[in-house]
Design a protein around this nucleic acid. Structure first.
Lengths: 223, 223
DNA sequence: TCCAAACCTGAAGAATGCTTCATATATCCG
DNA sequence: CGGATATATGAAGCATTCTTCAGGTTTGGA
C-alpha cells in the first residue's frame, strides 16, 4: 500500500495545568463517543470538539492533527487490553491447563466487553494510520504474558510455548471482536465463551510435550 | 450506533451493452486497486473513476452514490469467500476429523490470501455501511457448509455440529485477517496454518460425542 | 496587584469530496 | 441511412473537513 507521507503525530503541547489535563481526557472520551455514535468514517475533529464541549482550536492545541489524536486514542485502548491479559496471566502462574484456557478467554472477553464496539472500529482506524507497530507491540506483549504462564503450568510441559502463545493470541485478538459485534443473548455469549475455552484447552492438551511427541511419531509429516 | 438515514443503494442503471458491462467491471476492479494503494479512508469516487479510466459521471451512471459502489464491492467479495468455503466443504463429505480441520483452514486461507489486504479494508467499509446483514449472511453460509461437513464425518459423531461450526467460523473469520496482515515468511505462515489446524482438530476431537459426554461426566458444570 | 504564561475560542480560508447535468459520442435496429 | 436509445464526459456547484491564528480568558507566582 502506497501511503501519503506520514504527518507528525507528536503532541503540539503537553498539558501543564489540571484543567488542561482534564480537557485532554474529555477530548479522548469524546473521540470514543463519536466513534460509537457516528462510526469511523464520520469521525472528525469538528464533531469531537463539539462533543467534548471545547473549541476545535483547543483540540489542535494538544494534537497536531487528526491522525495524532486517533493514534493516541488507539494507543490507550491497546494498553488497556494488553494490561488486562498480562494481569490475568500474572495471577495465574502454576495453573492447570484448564485454568489457563479459561483465564485467557475470560480476561480478553472482559476487557473487550467493557468497550465492545470500540475495538473493531479502532482496529480499522489503525489500518489507515499505519499503526502496525503499535498493534504488534500489544500483540507481542500478550504473547509474552501467555507464554510465561504456559511455562509455569502445573500439570503440563509444552514443547514450544511461544508458538502456542502466538496462535492463541492471534485467535483471541481476531475472534473476540466478531463475538462482541454480534447481537447475542447472554446465554449465547456464555456458550461462545465456553466453546472458545474448550478449543483452547484441547489445543493445549494436544500441544503438551508427551502428546505432541506421540503425534509426531504416528503422523507422517507432509510439510 | 446511531447512523444517518441510509441512502439508496440500488443501481441507477443496469448495463445494457457489452461495453457498459465491461465498464462496470473495470470500476469494480479500480475500486479494489484504490483500496489497496490508498487505503479505505482515501478511497473516493474521483480516484476510482480516474483509476478506472472513466469519467466520474459514468461511475454515477451505474451507482447512485459512493456507498452503493462500496456495498456492491463488498457483496462480491463476501460471495467469493463464502463460495470457497462451501466448495471445499462439499468436496470433503465423509472425511476424517483431520481432513475436516485441514479443509477449513486451507480453504479460507487460500481464499483470503488471494486478496489479503482487501478484506480488512472492506470490513471498515462494511462497518460504515451498516452491512451487518451482508456479513451475517456470509457467516451463516459458511457455518452451514461446515456444519453439513461435520455431520458427514467418517470417523466421528458430534453432539452439536452447529455450535462447533459457529465457533470455527468465528475463529477463521476473525483470525485469518490477522495472519494475512502480518509480515510473515512462507515458513512462518505454514507454521501458523499448522497450528490453526491442530487447534481445530483437537477441538473437534474434544467435541466428539463420546469425548464430550465423558467430559461432562467428570467435570462439574459451574454455569 | 500585576504580568507572563497557560489555556481557550471560533471564524475564516484552503482543500477536498460528492454529486449533478448539459453536452457529446457510440450503438442498434427498422 | 437516420433516429432513438445507450453510454460517456468533466466542469461546476455545493457541502464538508482540516487547520490556523488573531484575540480573549484564566492561572500562578513574584
Amino acid at each position: 500500500m502506497g501511503k501519503a507521507s506520514r504527518p507528525t503525530l507528536n503532541r503540539r503541547k503537553l498539558p501543564r495545568q489540571a484543567r488542561s489535563a482534564v480537557t485532554v481526557d474529555v477530548i479522548f472520551e469524546a473521540t470514543i463517543q463519536v466513534l460509537l455514535s457516528d462510526g469511523p468514517i464520520r469521525l472528525n475533529t469538528t464533531r469531537v470538539a463539539r462533543r467534548a464541549g471545547v473549541s476545535v482550536g483547543t483540540l489542535y492545541q494538544y494534537f497536531p492533527n487528526k491522525q495524532a489524536l486517533l493514534f493516541a486514542v488507539l494507543e490507550r485502548h491497546l494498553a488497556v487490553l494488553a494490561d488486562a491479559i498480562a494481569k490475568a496471566c500474572d495471577e495465574n502462574r502454576c495453573a492447570t491447563v484448564e485454568k489457563i484456557a479459561e483465564t485467557v478467554v475470560k480476561a480478553y472477553l472482559n476487557a473487550r466487553m467493557a468497550q465492545a464496539e470500540v475495538s473493531p472500529a479502532l482496529a480499522l482506524v489503525a489500518m489507515e494510520l499505519d499503526a502496525r507497530e503499535l498493534i504488534d507491540a500489544a500483540l507481542r506483549r500478550s504473547e509474552k504474558a501467555i507464554e510465561t504462564m504456559l511455562s509455569t503450568a502445573s500439570d503440563s510441559r509444552f514443547v514450544d510455548p511461544r508458538v502456542i502463545a502466538q496462535t492463541i493470541t492471534a485467535v483471541i485478538y481476531g475472534t473476540v471482536p466478531a463475538f462482541c459485534q454480534r447481537v447475542m443473548s447472554p446465554a449465547a455469549r456464555r456458550e461462545a465463551e465456553k466453546q472458545l475455552t474448550i478449543m483452547f484447552r484441547s489445543y493445549l492438551i494436544a500441544q503438551r510435550s508427551s502428546a505432541a511427541e506421540a503425534r509426531r511419531a504416528t503422523t507422517p509429516s507432509s510439510r
